[in-house]
Write a protein that binds this DNA or RNA. Structure first.
Lengths: 242, 242
DNA sequence: AACTTTATGTGCGTAATCGTACGTCTGGCT
DNA sequence: AGCCAGACGTACGATTACGCACATAAAGTT
């Protein structure tokens, strides 16, 4: 279906799974469409599936009773949702929803847990990814504590750019303000600054990355650490050939 | 030695390990002293041990080339250091050091990996803890993005209070400023505010919690979510008796 | 006791961001 | 063509925290 020699999966985690496990993984995957605002995991409700994104972007946010919300993780075709199931945890206070339309291959909780138990290599890839996801969350904490809105916005746009095809993607200031934990007018102003610097071009509900290098300069060290670890631990890790 | 019916381990994770695994775990543990500023894990250097704290407090911080540092995790007798080893990862960009003196039971990387492979119940307890550690990091990101310094300081003091015996612990404003990612004079001022409200008493290098309830009111929803999940997933989880 | 280190107290101009309130534009719908 | 909701632009006082600079004070050192 999806995993074969000619047709490699577009999800980076699936493409790193050892060949011996391909058939078992393939058998339990199901393709689904992802639309903006779709909720993949409701806070404190049982998780039902693990989604391996093939395109599009999902966000993991934490919220409180007093209505504050902030993004603590971002997922594209490099990752998967539903990590708590890997940890023998049935639900989490975090919410996962779709930020940018796309597609995913998903498997049920039962299928996922079965593979985790029976396929150590599958488990190892997922655990390495879980570690990197943790690094992303930590980097977000650092960003919110130590960097300006301009730097954080540059970081977010870079992370989004890493996860979409092409240089343009749909996103509203309103969404960005939730992601970054700031008020909406502040996003508008800061977008104009980045636009004035020639790094991006903004249209209604759309942002285009024009000069990625300059954006990376602006983001500074708020961007890059988890990304480097992903390359070291997953992309560059040697997988035995079939 | 440590794990026995009369002498339960003071580390909450070890005390949750299934009885069948006690002997195997006990055999590889070694007691060590922890002194302030001791480094348990250097950034990007191979991890050598997993430490199960029995007393004292450790901090996990992320730092950048441009000298910014911030705490992304805190560990006491409820947890353990070296989680990347659980994820099949040999090193991490984060640094772990001792914040408050104490003791730990540690095991070597090899011993830990062996137990992870051969003792599924041991692995499950560790994985649940790893999930909660992730929640702490996420909550920290939320705190830095959405709460004032006063609220964040109250949260940190509560988390520290949860991990020490008694109501007083040694901590300097300088350390707190690193933990919270703010400048040091800001900590001093905010400590005075909390002291003025009658919640704490501050001496040179020491802080005493006087009114915990009021401190929790000040911290608001910046405190409590990961703590509740720890209780749900670890403390209240039923473990088969010997 | 003099000295050094470490820790704390304080002030003040500046920058970043909030909170709030409007006004305007765009694209889809009827 | 007209309507409407969602998205964007702008302004401004208030608040929070930064970034210095410097004074004081407590503990350890010799």
């Amino acid at each position: 279906m999806v995993i074969s020699s000619q047709n490699a999966p577009r999800n980076s985690l699936l493409s790193r799974m050892p060949p011996d496990d391909h058939a078992a993984i393939l058998a339990v995957l199901e393709r689904v469409e992802l639309r903006r605002k779709d909720v993949l995991a409701r806070p404190n409700e049982p998780l039902t599936h693990v989604h391996f994104l093939e395109s599009g972007v999902a966000s993991v946010v934490v919220g409180t009773r007093d209505r504050r919300r902030i993004e603590v993780g971002i997922i594209g075709s490099e990752g998967a949702t539903g990590l708590p199931l890997l940890f023998d945890v049935d639900s989490t206070p975090h919410e996962t929803f779709i930020q940018i339309d796309g597609e995913a291959l998903r498997m049920s909780k039962a299928a996922f847990c079965g593979l985790i138990e029976q396929r150590p290599a599958f488990r190892k890839v997922m655990m390495r990814y879980a570690h990197i996801f943790q690094l992303f969350t930590a980097q977000t904490a650092l960003s919110h504590g130590s960097y300006t809105l301009e730097e954080r916005l540059a970081r977010w746009l870079l992370m989004c750019h890493d996860r979409v095809e092409g240089d343009e993607f749909p996103i509203t200031h309103e969404f960005l303000s939730v992601m970054l934990g700031v008020h909406r007018p502040g996003v508008t102003t800061t977008i104009h600054i980045l636009e004035g610097a020639g790094t991006i071009r903004a249209r209604r509900s759309h942002i285009e990355i024009v000069d990625r290098e300059k954006l990376e300069l602006i983001a500074g060290d708020s961007y890059g650490i988890p990304e480097a670890e992903y390359r070291r631990l997953i992309t560059d890790d040697v997988v035995p050939e079939p």
